[in-house]
Write a protein that binds this DNA or RNA. Structure first.
Lengths: 211, 211
DNA sequence: TAGATTGTTAATCGATTAACAATC
DNA sequence: TAGATTGTTAATCGATTAACAATC
C-alpha cells in the first residue's frame, strides 16, 4: 500500500490532474519526463510536483526524471482505481442521466450497479443496461448488494433525508450534485460536493472584474 | 463598485457559498446573524467570515452582527449577479442539455442566448426556446450578437481549436466541461475548468483510504 | 566521468486563526 | 450603561518555492 495518512487535501486534489497529464503524455508516446518539463506543461512549479509525489514515494531517478508509464501506474495505485467501488445513482433526471453518459466510471475506479428514482414513469425502464429501480425498494436491494458509493442527483429538499438513509444502509462515499452542502460530522463518510452553481458564480465575479 | 483587486482566489471561491447560505437563512426568515452563528452553520471559523467580508467592506455592526438580507445583497453586488452576461452553449450533447436544464442561469448572473452544435441531426431543433445553430455559422452570429461567456460541452479533441476561435470572436469567459485544461496565458480571459472526473478520482482516493 | 535531475531540507510566502480595542 | 460582536492587527500555521547535496 503506497497510500499514507497525513497527506494534505491540496496534494490529493492535484493527483487526478497529474494522472490526466501523464495519460496524455503516454498517448503521445512520451517515455520519460522531468519534473521541470511536466511542470511546464501543467503550468505549475517543478518542486511542487516533486514534493507532491514524494508524499507517496520516490518514483523518479536522479539524472533521468520519471518514467511516464511507471509514474502513471503508481498514481493509479495511490488513487485505488482498480478497486472498482460499487456505485448507485439516486435520481435519474437530466443531470443523472448526463453524468452516467458523460463519465467513464470504470476508468475512475467505480462500478455502476444500479439507479434509483421515485418517479413511476421511469421506474422499470433501462438505463445503461440496468433497470431503474424504485427508491422505495432500496432496503431490499441492500440485502443483496453492498454498494459503497452513491451519486446524488436529487433536489435540495430531499437531499438530507436521502443522505441519512443511505448512510444507515452503509454508503461510505457521496458524489453530491444536489444544491446542498452535506455536512460531514462523521469521519467515516466521505462527501464530494460538486457545486456547479458556485463555479458559475465565481466565473461571474471574475469576468465582471475584467472591465 | 465594492469589488477590489488583490482579493485572493480562495476568498472569491468562498463568496458563492456565503451567498448560498444567506439565501437559505432568508428563506427561513432569519433577519440577522453573527459571524459566530454563521460560522457554525457553515462549518468554518468566524474570523474567516469576518476577514473575507472585510475584503469588500464593513457590512456588519458591532454588537448586532449582520443583517441577512443586506449582506446577501452586498454579496450579490460583489459577484455582479445582476449584470446578466450573454452566454452561449457550445456542444448540445447529453451534458450540455443537462446543464441547461439544471442550472438557473439568470439567478447566477448569466443570460443564455444561443446553443451551437455541428451535428446536422439536431441543428434547427429547439432548446429552451432557442434554436440550435450550426457551429459553422458562428461568425455571422457574432456580427449581430456579442456574447461574452461560452459553456464548452465538447469533446477534448475539439476543445483547443474551438477555444481559440471563440477568443478571436470576443468571448471573455469559459465554463469548460471538456476533459481538457484550457491554458490561460491570456490575462484577459477567464476560464473555469469543471473537472468532474478529477472530483470523482478524489472521492475514489478518499473512500479507499477509509479502510 | 560529467551532466542532469531527483529527493529533501530550509526559507519564504500566504492564508487562517487568535486576540482585542472599537463601537453599536 | 453593559453586553455583544464587529473590524483589524498580530500570531500562527500550513503550503509553496528555493536551494542543494545525493546520485543515477
Amino acid at each position: 500500500m503506497s497510500n499514507k495518512n497525513n497527506v494534505s487535501i491540496s496534494v490529493i486534489r492535484r493527483l487526478p490532474r497529474y494522472y490526466r497529464f501523464l495519460n496524455d503524455l503516454l498517448m503521445q508516446d512520451v517515455e520519460r519526463i522531468s519534473s521541470d518539463k511536466l511542470a511546464n506543461i501543467m503550468g505549475v512549479t517543478a518542486p511542487q510536483i516533486r514534493q507532491d509525489l514524494n508524499c507517496f514515494g520516490g518514483f523518479g531517478q536522479q539524472g533521468y526524471g520519471y518514467n511516464v508509464l511507471e509514474l502513471k501506474n503508481e498514481i493509479s495505485k495511490i488513487l485505488g482505481i482498480k478497486n472498482k467501488l460499487d456505485t448507485i445513482l439516486i435520481g435519474v433526471g437530466n443531470l443523472g442521466r448526463a453524468i452516467l453518459t458523460h463519465i467513464d466510471f470504470d476508468s475512475k475506479g467505480f462500478n455502476f450497479i444500479a439507479a434509483f428514482d421515485k418517479d413511476s414513469e421511469i421506474i422499470g425502464k433501462k438505463l445503461f443496461g440496468k433497470e431503474i429501480l424504485d427508491i422505495n425498494n432500496i432496503d431490499e436491494f441492500f440485502k443483496i448488494n453492498k454498494p459503497v458509493i452513491a451519486i446524488l442527483c436529487i433536489p435540495k429538499s430531499e437531499s438530507d433525508i436521502v443522505y441519512k438513509k443511505l448512510i444507515s444502509l452503509g454508503i461510505k462515499g457521496f458524489w453530491n450534485f444536489s444544491h446542498f452542502d452535506l455536512s460531514v460530522d462523521n469521519k467515516d463518510i466521505i462527501v464530494e460536493n460538486v457545486h456547479l452553481e458556485d463555479s458559475l458564480l465565481t466565473l461571474c465575479y471574475r469576468v465582471n472584474e475584467l472591465k
